[in-house]
Design a protein around this nucleic acid. Structure first.
Lengths: 344, 344
DNA sequence: ATCCTCCATGTAATCGATTCCATGCGGTCC
DNA sequence: GGACCGCATGGAATCGATTACATGGAGGAT
């Protein structure tokens, strides 16, 4: 019952293994009747080429590695899904490594993927750049950063540019009369952690508003930290009027904390989030959020990586994010631009 | 800059490749000083064994395949995560295949995983059993079904038993005075599709309630079908008082439809779901749901699969699900047993 | 008829590891 | 001192594919 090998096919068809291989790879110089005999033998034996052997010989696995910081985060789930879709369209498989925001786990996955000799690596770095990752870059592993990146490392980046959307958000909040705006940021060691704070600060400045240190929450892109920092904000002598969470999980934690403290959104305090996810439509109240073109990011990143693998030189890309206004910061949504539930 | 191979290490350490291999696999009969010399060479060259070559020789990849029907479904995401965690603890990697509820895509992934010579396969079948999957079983591929399974196929199953929880749910609804209860079921070709309807019907019978055909919605585990069937229910001369969706995505669709029709939950109509997910706490209103021991399912399934791979004979397992009462069917939650946001 | 070319196919090397078997050497036992 | 034993190591086969090179035969040009 063991799997048939190319030798068995060759024997059964009365040809050499070379000929079988040629048929399988549709090499032009095989006589039609030979090809047919081989195909018949393949069929009869239920033969399937051994991918491992093939990979060893050809030095390519047609596999991409994707290392993300948290699979349970809907944003990354959607990213992973679009990556797999696009990769499959190009004949590649994807192995996902879940770093769970832990540098050590990220390194484990990178190493393990490299050991498996994946053809290329898509990474959303959890930290400022571990030796393992830097070594991989130096060794010339085809690599593309997605969502987050490492400044100063020569690797193409595919990401969303949230600056304009954050400016829009701040303008929206300002127009609603809010003046004391706080942010729960991600780890400063990640680009998405620091960048969103900077964009927020600049947008505030445009309206002559300050961003005091007390209004900067230091989160870690997990729900717990959103909860903690929100609680801290509420204990302030002058709590903020709106909390902007730099990702959806921290927004969730913030919501928990607000609910626990008995405050009503948006009546007592406003909430907005970076990352839009389907559930934000169904929360109480629906959450105003900045939507990234997630699926497009995944597809673009895969195309860039395949370009690198095949010897071309891909460009970095920054796709625009956009503001989706709902009800969590006050004032009902305007009649247009309300929902966001198209399925891609 | 190409990767060093075992030959390079052997040359650099002045030993044979056999000895290097012995060191790498911590074979006992290598002299300590030799071992040290080899390790030094490994270090100096930054050598990492080629997993592909190793797999070819040893005929094992230390990789598990997981084929699920929908990665974007939080239930499966959590399942995938726990599977990966447990597999990693046993020294295995996981390749996830997303079937997207499409039998053809499921087959694609099974075939592709088999070609890669994964050591074992975890499947949650999308349909009634394709030839590809049946062939894999017949060929003796180590396999375990998780969540859904194929009746009559001799493969261990790890799943949640929702019968008791569904009875509890119906009792709860009955106690609240609801009598006209409808269900949005999954495809009859899946076990979770048909089983939940049966359990629901039996539970209703215990209270002397019927389950008319008109109150059985035929969904496909996707949000769209939940929306469609809910709309159909509402058009009935006598619409149901509570809708029970057989999974979280269809519940989401139902919620959309109810909202669109201007009905308030639970005041005008009740909603309950199979599968509990973190977001159900934050929806408007929080949704009463049946929680599966998802992470435990994943871990148990992996252990069973590894048992099979290593020659033991694992048992099937059915872990109990439990009811989590919130506010979507009326009456505020009792002071105990309200929330459900522990993180594993 | 001779030679050249080209097509279909086979032979064998190769990818990078693991592992069986052979070998040489130092030490023990009688 | 010779036989034997066991340990550390090396040589070479092997896993299942791909592919460069060799080969033989058919057909065309002269």
């Amino acid at each position: 019952m063991a799997n048939a090998s190319i030798k068995d096919v060759a024997a059964s068809a009365g040809v050499s293994v070379a000929t079988v291989s040629r048929v399988l790879n549709s090499h032009p110089s095989v006589r039609p009747d030979t090809r047919e005999r081989v195909m018949a033998a393949v069929e009869a034996l239920g033969y399937r080429p051994n991918g491992v052997a093939r990979s060893l010989r050809t030095d390519q696995t047609r596999t991409l590695g994707l290392v993300i910081s948290d699979v349970m985060n809907p944003y990354f789930t959607e990213l992973a899904r679009s990556v797999e879709d696009e990769a499959r369209a190009h004949g590649y498989s994807v192995i996902i490594g879940n770093a769970d925001e832990q540098p050590a786990l990220q390194d484990h996955h990178i190493r393990s993927l490299l050991d498996r000799r994946i053809d290329g690596l898509l990474v959303s770095p959890t930290d400022g750049g571990s030796p393992v990752m830097l070594d991989a870059v130096r060794a010339g592993t085809p690599m593309v950063f997605v969502d987050r990146w490492l400044p100063g490392v020569d690797v193409p980046v595919v990401r969303a540019d949230g600056r304009a959307a954050i400016r829009e958000l701040v303008a929206h909040l300002h127009a609603l009369g809010h003046r004391r705006l706080a942010i729960i940021a991600g780890p400063a060691s990640t680009t998405t952690g620091s960048e969103r704070v900077e964009a927020f600060r600049e947008a505030l400045a445009e309206h002559g508003l300050p961003l005091p240190d007390a209004y900067i929450g230091h989160g870690d892109f997990r729900a717990g930290s959103g909860h903690r920092e929100t609680t801290r904000f509420l204990a302030l002598a002058e709590p903020p009027q709106v909390i902007f969470a730099a990702d959806n999980l921290m927004a969730l934690g913030a919501m928990d904390a607000l609910r626990a403290s008995g405050l009503r959104i948006p009546h007592d305090i406003g909430l907005a989030a970076f990352d839009d996810i389907p559930w934000f439509v169904h929360t109480d109240p629906p959450v105003t959020a900045i939507a990234q073109p997630t699926a497009e990011l995944g597809r673009t990143a895969v195309r860039a990586l395949i370009d690198r693998i095949e010897g071309r030189t891909p460009q970095s890309a920054a796709l625009p994010a956009r503001l989706v206004i709902r009800r969590s910061c006050g004032e009902p949504a305007p009649p247009f631009r309300t929902e966001n539930r198209s399925n891609r």
